[in-house]
Structure formats: structure tokens, C-alpha cells
Design a protein around this nucleic acid. Sequence first.
DNA 1: TCCTGTGAACGAATTCACAGCA
DNA 2: TGCTGTGAATTCGTTCACAGGA
Lengths: 285, 285
Amino acid sequence: MATGRTHRPATRSRGIPEATVARLPLYLRALTALSERSVPTVSSEELAAAAGVNSAKLRKDFSYLGSYGTRGVGYDVEYLVYQISRELGLTQDWPVVIVGIGNLGAALANYGGFASRGFRVAALIDADPAMAGKPVAGIPVQHTDQLETIIHDSGVSIGVIATPAGAAQQVCDRLVAAGVTSILNFAPTVLSVPDGVDVRKVDLSIELQILAFHEQRKNGEERDERADRDERPPRDTGQAVAATVAPAAEAAGPGANAAQGPVAGAVPGASPKGPDGDVPAVMPA
Amino acid sequence: MATGRTHRPATRSRGIPEATVARLPLYLRALTALSERSVPTVSSEELAAAAGVNSAKLRKDFSYLGSYGTRGVGYDVEYLVYQISRELGLTQDWPVVIVGIGNLGAALANYGGFASRGFRVAALIDADPAMAGKPVAGIPVQHTDQLETIIHDSGVSIGVIATPAGAAQQVCDRLVAAGVTSILNFAPTVLSVPDGVDVRKVDLSIELQILAFHEQRKNGEERDERADRDERPPRDTGQAVAATVAPAAEAAGPGANAAQGPVAGAVPGASPKGPDGDVPAVMPA
DNA sequence: TCCTGTGAACGAATTCACAGCA
DNA sequence: TGCTGTGAATTCGTTCACAGGA
């Protein structure tokens, strides 16, 4: 899911399911690797293994694109690479701007995978005047003031936001107003955008929290002390104790691939309950 | 202890759906923000809006955790923050190691959201001897040789891989062998791990490709060359003809020169890599 | 009355299993 | 004889709509 509001009516057009779209890049990568090794054809089984999915899913996915395989044989690697690239829109050039050239923005600018798939860093933008002119990854950083001009002149339609959370929405609004219709958001904020604009977010913190959830479960199997979780809250109605956290983050995973089975047999007594104190004490500084 | 105990009318026993788990961090962040503003309670409607989901979904999600709301009123913010934190395992400390301190690794090390949710960067590891000892984000980088020792001594169970694709699997194997059971992978490779180990991946390139797909469709709407998906491939029966179609690489690379950005998901054995390799990214500063 | 909690309807995604073609 | 392509079955996730407690 990506768009902020509006349920995506999308998916309709060609009718390729979102889940499938999210896997196409995966297949493409595996195919590209095969191509570089001059492998002429692959079976769904082999390709699936290389992409980390199962073959039935892969075949179903490809069936949405058309019938590009040969029964009894498999898929022609080069041809499939081309078809998927075209379907994803990678046969054209996509100028991209990155806003917020901090640690992350710089990492993104230097990311090699960028240029290798039709994406081109058209400009780097930062609000810090001191950054202006300084080259990052060979590209001079420009000041935020230039944002609209840059977008317009470069015909950019994809923007990457790597600013602090506090600035994200504002940057987003300006990008959208300037004509950007797809945004990749690295800031830990929910962005609201008008219809027609796609937003995808990537967030380390969320991924880690999901891992922690499963990790806890692995270890916590045997420990279970407290009672039921249903018990009524100690409720204190007090109010916001200062403490607590700073902005965190989240990310939407498209088809995040989990490695394996969740939960297994439903831990019985699970759910401990932290009756002890009451609220937060969570998070260290 | 018998698995029996689950006899509560409501309340599920365990088995919180993955989709729900993936949203808990979102709710947590929204709640934390409310908490900081000393808001005592929220309705599902308000909280849902803040988290960017719809209220029915949010209520359903919370129902898997238990009944933590009050009909006619809403949810107690502090209490819910605590419950979700606990459910996610954030009430405990999670030492984490980051392997691969390039642009991305450094960005991750500097990411504030790290420490703010129970995660603590226990160590930074890099294969480059020249990096050893250099502090990044205040933490001295250690050499890969120390990996096993570090993991063991710090009791790390979550590892972050931010190395070039070519090194990822090997690093992964070592992490797993040393006891890590959850991995967050930023390298554009499919990692294979034994059962019991969770892997989540974050991939910038994939996110951009998904955006490109939708972007392309927005522009191409009206021309709608229908039916083209059913049409039979122009492909001739012959196979593996050298270059009938444009391989992705060239279709893609405007600014990219073939020599440089191979991308591709790491073919075992090959490991190009420039300064930084291919690594997608994450996190704002 | 208002808002939560949840059964039930619905829809999307995955998996099964096999028909059909090279 | 393989291996693709795909309906059918199944599982998972979302949304609806309303019962029921504060």
C-alpha cells in the first residue's frame, strides 16, 4: 500500500496485482544475473529459487504479464528481462531528485543500483545553505529554494525524501506542487498527498521492530508467568509522562519476504502482561 | 503446561497476523506522538488517521492484542503505548550489530531512531582493515575477524547487513553461525538461511521500480494499447539469440556506463563493487 | 449516545493440481 | 516427457455492519 488517502483504485488497468508488481524487480534481478552468465533459459523452478519465491507463485505472476515461456522448456532469459523491464517502465529514463542530503541522502546518492536501472539522480537538494555547491557523489547539492525550478527543468516525476521527519510533509507538498507524482519517503512520517500521487515508505525502525517481535517470540516460548492478557488495564489516566521516545519510524513493506514461518504453534500461556508498573519505561535514550 | 488455558471468550491466544504486526510500529509511533502532546485518549478514528490506516482495520488489529479500549470513549494513550511496546518486544534491550560500514552503514549507525526504541548499536563491523578503529557515530569500527567474538560477547541476536551484495551471503552465514537469529538485509541479494532465522530485506531499487511501474501507468493511461499482453511474443522459436531485445542494463542506463553498475543480485562468486557496492538504503538522519 | 469489539461478507494472494503444448 | 499456464481450492487480509458496554 502506498497512497496516503484514497484506496488505490489502481491495479485495475492491466490488472497486474500489486503483490506481483512488487516481485517483478526481484525476478528481474535474478534474470539479470543469469543473463550476465549467459544462461539462455531457465525453468520456473530455477528462477524461483534464485528469486527466493516458490515456482507456482512465479508462474502465476508471469501469467499476468502474458505467456512468455515455452512449455517443456522454460523461459528465455533475455526475452524475459526485456519484458519485465518494459512492464516496470525501466526502458525509459527516470530522473529522480533526492531531498535531504544527510547521511542517508548521501548514501542514496552514492547508491550504484540507482543508475543501473533507468533511474538517474537529476539533482540533490538540501535546506542547509552550507551544503549548497558541495558535490556529493559527483553531483553538486542545490538549495531548497531551487526545488521547483529543478523539478520543472529536469522533468522529474519521482522524488526521494530523506529529510528529518519534521520537514518531510513540507518538502512533500512542494514536490507535489511542482509536479512530482511518485514519492519514496525515508522520513518516519505519514505523508498526506492528493489523489494520483503515490507514496512508498521505507523505514528501518519498523523493520527492526517487526524482527524484534518475532525474536521475542522465539525466546519467550518458555517463559510465561503472568496471567491473562485480558485483564483490565491498571489504567491511570494520568497523563503524558514526559519520558518516552522520539519520533520513530515505519515502513511499509510491499511484499516483505519473511524468511519463514511465524509463530508455529501458538504459544500457549503466552501473553505475559506487564502488570508491574504501568506505562512506559520503554526505550532507553 | 497444557496448551489448554486458552479459554477466554474473546482474546485470541496467539497468532497475531503478520499484517497486523507490521502495523503495530505505525500505531506505536502515532501514539508516541500523542503521548508527547499529553493527549490522554484517542478514538480509533483519530488514531487511524494519524497512522494512515482506516479505523476498522485498526480496531481489528487491536482486537488481536486484547481489549484495551473503552467503549464510548476510546483508547488510553499511555496504556496502549505500553501494551504495543510490550507486544513488539520493545520493553527489552536489543543489541544490534551493523556489518558493512559504507555510506549506508554509517547512515544507519547515525540513525537516531535506532536507540529510541530499544535497539542499541552494539558494534559496527567492516571488512576493510583501514576502517578498523575509526569511530563512526561514536562507535569504533571493528574488523570482520572479530565478528564471532563480538556477537558472542554482546549477546547480539539481530544483525544488520549493509555490505555489498557479493559479501552478504557470507556475512549472513557467519552471523547465523555465531547465533544471530534475525537479520535485516540491505544488500540486494536473496539470503538463504536455516529455519528459525528471520530475514527481512529493505531494497531501495525495488521500491523505485515499483514506483516507476505506477508512474508509467499514470502517463500511459489514455493510450492504452490494450490487448498487447495477450499477443504472442514476437519471439521466434529459436532460443537465446544474442541480442534481439534490449537487455535491461542498456535499456536502463542513461548515465550509467555498462562497466560500472552491474547490479544484479550477486551471482555467487562474482562481486564487482565499486566504492560502495549496491546497497539500498534507509533512514533519515 | 458514542465508540469499541467482532462475526460475517468480501476480496486479494497463495497454493494446489492438472490440462495442454513443445 | 517436461514444464508452462491456469482454473479451483485455500488461506490470508480487509471491510462491513452491528451488537453491546460505558
